[in-house]
Write a protein that binds this DNA or RNA. Structure first.
Length: 765
DNA sequence: CTGGGTGCAGTTTTT
DNA sequence: CTGCACCCAG
């Protein structure tokens, strides 16, 4: 199909004309393409159309195109759009039907690494178990020397004092916090978590472990511990997300990897001709290396799209420098002669012109943001779509003169929350918005203690809330009752429980038991099951495997999972299963239980935590070690991590509810009315992710010094954080802050101080 | 506006 | 167990 025809059809269908900037990106022929896309500039649309152009106008083999995104959700969204647009094109030109766009490799880099290595049966990735975050934590808890129950203290104490920023925080498990002044090690779960962060970072930042090892002192210890962790992963045929990418780099060096990139003139292996990357500002060093390798053949068709002002994932190794210095990277990896010119997409089609102006002036009001090296050199200002009003009215919106960027205050946070809820209620009652889901409250933490006041204020006005990331799954009755039931069976006399020293673990188990005893009162069948299960264990001799209840003719070993599934077949669990939300919560719990039971543990290959045994000396009681492990490991994990409610993959927010979201959750989304809370943050602390980045930077395979001090980068991160929040708004942006926050002129108010802020923003109460 | 005493609450995100 | 936020005195 002719490119011109194709664009005409797509423009007719979408009712929107592509801008010259967008056309430049879509029609770019060969070589690296560096797209600096501001918020709301239609970057995903452009990426999708460029893909269509490659496959349907240039007839690039779909299998030779790789398109990566940051999340699975975004990948699915792109696949849907590709299929939709392709259907239009097929109508116009039936000969295109033979072009199968589902062959384009669309996904997160992680999922593509996994799929491609499976497809090519890469030896180094055959029969490996891919560990998710929970699995990785349990694995590290069991296998890493850093997380051992009794590690060599003289060696490890200095290490934890060096990396104290990873462990000196409040520990929910023990109920107190560790600091470097202590002469004992941090709690095992704190060390586990920190070990996970360290190991992931070593891989993602491409740290030269041998060089680290040669440093002496704690860094030598760290290098050794990393190597033994990596070795344990291998010997147990496990692979975490970070090593998935490392293995992929190894794969690319293997013969089949070379065939994957270069192709072999068959349609099965066309080679890689185009690599397109979305959200490139959040790419980390190992991912950058993968992309440069994938596109490493002339003419180096690597297209990266992102916004250096929206980098949000430093904790995951995300490095804005990859985006800012993409030209240098291309010259280093490809050739000095390659032309790499930044292509801006600088018109914002999403937001009211006032919101666009506010966002643009906000980001440029900070000296650390306009300094050289903070953003892509020569980045143009974000500009509003001159037809915004006209287009919205054509869509049926009634726009008057209203405060499109404004702030709400109150004496204290409670009053702010009340005013916020009143505003939402007014918007609903005067018909400005037809559904609460057209608003969103953005805030750093969506945990109960941060958003409680806002939730309560909405609740009082009968406005339902959607907040799946509140880490409150463990507060739900069905989850608590199930866990309480398990404890009742495993530890009927609470002897194991009474010996626990960790307050956090004891408290949570007691709360589960309390929930369970409430539930069991009205459900005699459940009570009876618990009694029978307890009885069975109590009749088992010492040091024996407990066998399943004789519901079947043959008795077989009982496992934790079986007891759990058996138990939840009784009321009230059976009725609860009719409720979709409760069912998915229980599924989340089941998954954690399965993980706990199936993560391999050292020195006993093939055995599982799940099969119940009696104690070596005490007949009729669950093995003390097993019970203790259940408490320390599984319950400890639940206490230290918390669990989120499962989320619907398709729906952003169910209708009828007002979403409360973290800024990360809202990334890439847009809402008619955006409320941003706690805008007055003043103290900019250097977070653990930044300190670790600095500590490991000298050992990177390719050391790229940052032109900014650590403190400056911390500030930039905060500024970008609010920039992402602010740029979500379509019709109106409302900043929330109480009197004291306003007096303080925190970073969310802009870098020129309060007077500047008040010139740009209207007060509405 | 500063300084010290008291009291409460406790990071955040993704694969 | 810390650290910060807040309050009141100077």
């Amino acid at each position: 199909m002719d490119l011109h025809d194709m664009l005409t059809i797509l423009e007719q269908r979408s009712g929107r004309q592509l801008s010259q900037e967008q056309l430049d990106v879509i029609t770019h022929e060969t070589g690296p393409l560096w797209v600096i896309a501001g918020p709301g500039s239609g970057k995903t649309e452009v990426l999708v159309i460029r893909c269509l152009k490659l496959a349907c106008a240039d007839f690039v083999e779909p299998r030779a195109i790789i398109l990566t995104t940051f999340t699975d959700k975004a990948a699915k969204n792109i696949q849907d759009r590709l299929a939709n647009y392709k259907a239009y094109l097929d109508q116009a030109d039936p000969s295109l039907r033979s072009v199968d766009l589902s062959q384009i490799r669309v996904g997160t880099l992680h999922s593509l690494c996994n799929d491609i290595m499976q497809e090519y049966r890469y030896r180094g990735y055959q029969n490996y178990r891919l560990l998710d975050e929970i699995d990785q934590l349990l694995f590290t808890y069991e296998h890493s020397g850093l997380a051992a129950s009794r590690p060599p203290q003289t060696l490890h104490l200095p290490l934890w004092r060096t990396f104290d920023y990873l462990v000196s925080r409040f520990n929910r498990v023990t109920g107190y916090s560790w600091s470097r002044t202590k002469n004992y090690l941090p709690h095992r779960w704190l060390r586990t978590n920190a070990a996970k962060v360290l190991f992931n970072r070593i891989v993602e930042d491409r740290i030269d472990v041998n060089q680290l090892r040669a440093q002496g002192g704690v860094l030598t210890t760290l290098a050794g511990e990393y190597q033994s962790y990596a070795h344990s992963l291998e010997s147990n045929l496990c692979c975490d997300f970070a090593h998935l990418q490392l293995k992929f780099l190894e794969f690319l060096d293997s013969p089949s990897g070379v065939r994957f990139i270069n192709g072999d003139d068959t349609s099965e292996h066309p080679g890689i001709h185009h690599v397109l990357v979305d959200e490139y500002q959040d790419t980390n060093p190992i991912q950058e290396e993968i992309y440069l390798r994938l596109a490493g053949r002339e003419p180096y068709n690597l297209c990266v799209v992102g916004d250096d002002d929206q980098a949000l994932y430093r904790f995951r190794g995300g490095t804005v420098e990859c985006m800012v210095n993409f030209d240098d990277a291309c010259h280093r990896a490809f050739s000095d002669d390659v032309e790499v010119i930044p292509q801006p997409l600088s018109t914002n089609y999403r937001s009211h012109p006032n919101v666009v102006d506010w966002c643009d002036e906000y980001i440029r009001s900070f000296s650390v943001m306009i300094a050289e090296g903070a953003r892509v050199a020569g980045k143009p200002n974000l500009s509003a779509d001159p037809n915004w009003h006209q287009n919205r009215e054509a869509e049926g919106a009634v726009l008057g003169d209203y405060p499109s960027v404004c702030f709400l205050t109150g004496q204290d946070e409670r009053q702010v929350a009340e005013n916020f809820a009143n505003t939402v209620q007014n918007l609903l009652s005067d018909g400005t918005v037809s559904d609460p889901s057209q608003c969103v409250l953005l805030i750093k933490s969506t945990r109960e203690n941060s958003v409680g006041l806002y939730q309560a204020a909405l609740h009082d006005r009968y406005i339902p809330v959607y907040n799946p990331r509140s880490r409150t799954l463990l507060d739900q009755v069905e989850v608590q009752a199930a866990l309480g039931g398990l404890v009742s069976i495993l530890d009927p006399n609470r002897t194991g429980l009474s010996q626990l020293r960790e307050r956090g673990i004891r408290d949570i188990i007691n709360s589960w038991l309390a929930s369970f005893s409430q539930v069991v009162q009205n459900n005699p069948a459940l009570e009876d099951y618990i009694a029978r299960a307890t009885e069975r264990i109590s009749q088992t001799a010492a040091n024996q495997t407990v066998t399943q209840m004789a519901t079947q003719p043959t008795e077989f070993p009982a496992t934790l999972q079986e007891v759990y599934y058996h138990m939840i077949s009784f009321e009230p669990f059976a009725t609860w299963e009719l409720d979709a939300e409760r069912t998915v919560r229980m599924a989340t719990l089941s998954k954690v239980l399965e993980s706990y039971c199936s993560v391999p543990f050292p020195n006993s290959f093939g055995s599982t935590r799940g099969s119940l045994r009696t104690d070596r000396t005490a007949p009729g009681q669950i093995n003390t070690g097993q019970l203790n492990h259940f408490y320390q490991s599984l319950v400890g994990l639940l206490v230290s991590e918390g669990l989120n409610d499962p989320e619907d993959e398709e729906v952003i927010c169910p209708p009828g509810r007002l979403p409360i979201m973290t800024v990360h959750q809202a990334k890439g989304l847009e809402f008619p009315f955006v409320f941003v809370a706690k805008v007055g943050i003043q103290q900019i602390k250097i977070g653990a992710e930044l300190q670790l980045e600095d500590a490991l930077r000298p050992f990177r395979v390719s050391v790229v010094p940052s032109p900014f001090t650590t403190q400056q980068r911390a500030e930039q991160d905060y500024i970008r954080f609010f920039y992402v929040a602010y740029s979500r708004a379509q019709y109106a942006l409302v900043l929330l802050g109480h009197a004291r926050e306003l007096a303080r002129q925190g970073i969310g108010f802009g870098g020129y101080g309060r007077r500047w802020f008040e010139q740009h923003v209207q007060r509405v109460n």
